[in-house]
Write a protein that binds this DNA or RNA. Structure first.
Lengths: 196, 196
DNA sequence: ATAAATATTTTGACCGGTCAGTATAATTTT
DNA sequence: AAAATTATACTGACCGGTCAAAATATTTAT
């Protein structure tokens, strides 16, 4: 059945994710993916065009999952400042959880230039992120909590702030900075949106 | 001579840089480096421990060059707002020049986790960047142009803003966004530093 | 219901090719 | 000539992708 094949694909994507978090994206071989999924070497090639195709699907899965988590977090509170807080709490959910996800995301970012498929997936992810930011800013302006000239620009800058902060936190492997980066990012964004 | 060996190393690093901008970091082989330097295959291994060592030196060279350019730009003007402007003009100097440098930088960032040597080089680069930001913010506060509570935090957030913006611009390969990102980043930072 | 036929999925050996690193020979420099 | 440098050939490991055969599931025929 088609459902069965889809399940297998999901299993392989999950295996690729685990292999990548263990060994680092670039060192993952088709054999690794098969091993982690507990199937034989030929299986990944049976369900996917090639290795890159597996990773493209993983990238898609990863960005969709990040977006869904962020989106769900924002939806659970009412006011714009609360939504912003919830958004950032989700982005900086915990050092352990963040690290695997965003390290892998960074691996993909570095390869976007080479692969149009990655580019497309990332464009969709950005659009999703911008939509969260736009929604929060619009509501904040409407409620008089925020003050901005250009909602779209602000939404884009909010994501730039988040990505830049996460990037720094990831690449400075110093201890304990996680909480500091979360509050710094929060305060920075509050300034971006002209909160009082 | 020691100077001669240093020159050769520089030639090889330059070759690695050109090969990487042409073919993409991950596809560069030792043979490529030799070819671009117009020497034979054995030479890179004679002057460097191994391939990773060549790239570590390239990373160092790259980040130092970025920092020097930014630093020089800032030094050419007087006031804090002017320095900020000059800083960003240098960061967003032109789509073509930026793209090769920052694409390669992004490649390195993705590999920091795997390689302590890369991590160290990047830590030094960040420290340099923060020092530029700190200096501008301190002067701005002193002159009454800027208003911030925490200079250090602001310096770090300025770089996060820059990196996040560059990252977005790089990965959204849409045309013409370069100028828009420059002004957006500028306006965002002006809010971060409490200008007006 | 059972057997036979067919379709799908899985296996793992294998191939072609790449590449980092090595060893040694040739060349240049001192 | 001795040392340093460069050129070239080679090695061994690795890996992506293929494929024929085996195993399993599904359908059809009796």
């Amino acid at each position: 059945m088609a459902g069965k094949a889809e399940e297998r694909k999901q299993q392989l994507i999950k295996a690729a994710f685990e292999a990548a978090t263990d060994k680092g994206y670039e060192h993952v071989t088709l054999q690794d993916i098969a091993d982690y999924a507990e199937v034989s070497k030929g299986v990944p090639n049976y369900y996917f065009k090639n290795k890159g195709d597996v990773f493209a699907h993983l990238f898609e899965w990863l960005t969709e999952r990040i977006f869904e988590n962020e989106s769900a977090a924002v939806d659970q509170v009412e006011t714009a400042p609360e939504k912003l807080q919830a958004y950032l709490d989700q982005v900086f959910i915990s050092p352990e959880e963040n690290r695997t996800f965003y390290q892998l995301y960074l691996d993909f970012l570095a390869r976007i230039k080479q692969d149009p498929a990655y580019q497309k997936i990332n464009a969709a992810f950005y659009e999703h992120c911008f939509s969260i930011g736009r929604m929060i800013v619009e509501q904040g302006v409407r409620d008089g909590d925020f003050h901005v000239h250009d909602v779209e620009q602000t939404a884009v800058m909010i994501r730039a702030m988040i990505d830049g902060t996460l990037l720094q936190w990831l690449t400075r492997q110093e201890e304990d900075l996680h909480g500091w980066y979360r509050t710094s990012c929060h305060q920075g964004i509050l300034r971006l949106v002209g909160a009082q």
